[in-house]
């Protein structure tokens, strides 16, 4: 009983990943979309962080010039 259930789950899982024979087109699309979203998030964070560092440096230089 358990073996049959596992086999059917395995078969349906295989069917899901096969995407009706279009797996080599469908999965790269979703993978690339994930990559683009991740890149956007990472680069925006990095851009903001770099701007904060630059602004802090400018403030520190201005403060040292005043003193």
């Amino acid at each position: 009983m358990t073996g049959t259930l596992l086999l059917s789950m395995g078969a349906s899982s295989m069917g899901f990943w096969a995407m009706g024979g279009y797996a080599r087109f469908v999965w790269p699309c979703f993978a690339f979309a994930g990559l683009v979203l991740a890149w956007n998030w990472w680069s925006a964070r990095r851009y903001h962080a770099a701007a904060r560092v630059r602004a802090a440096r400018t403030l520190a230089m201005a403060a040292s010039e005043q003193s």
């Binding site: 998030w41 925006a44 904060r52 602004a55 400018t58």
Partner: peptide, 13 residues
């Protein structure tokens, strides 16, 4: 997030 960076870069002073 990017806008925050842009504003900081433009308003550094």
């Amino acid at each position: 997030m990017r806008l925050q960076g842009e504003v900081l870069n433009r308003e550094r002073q």
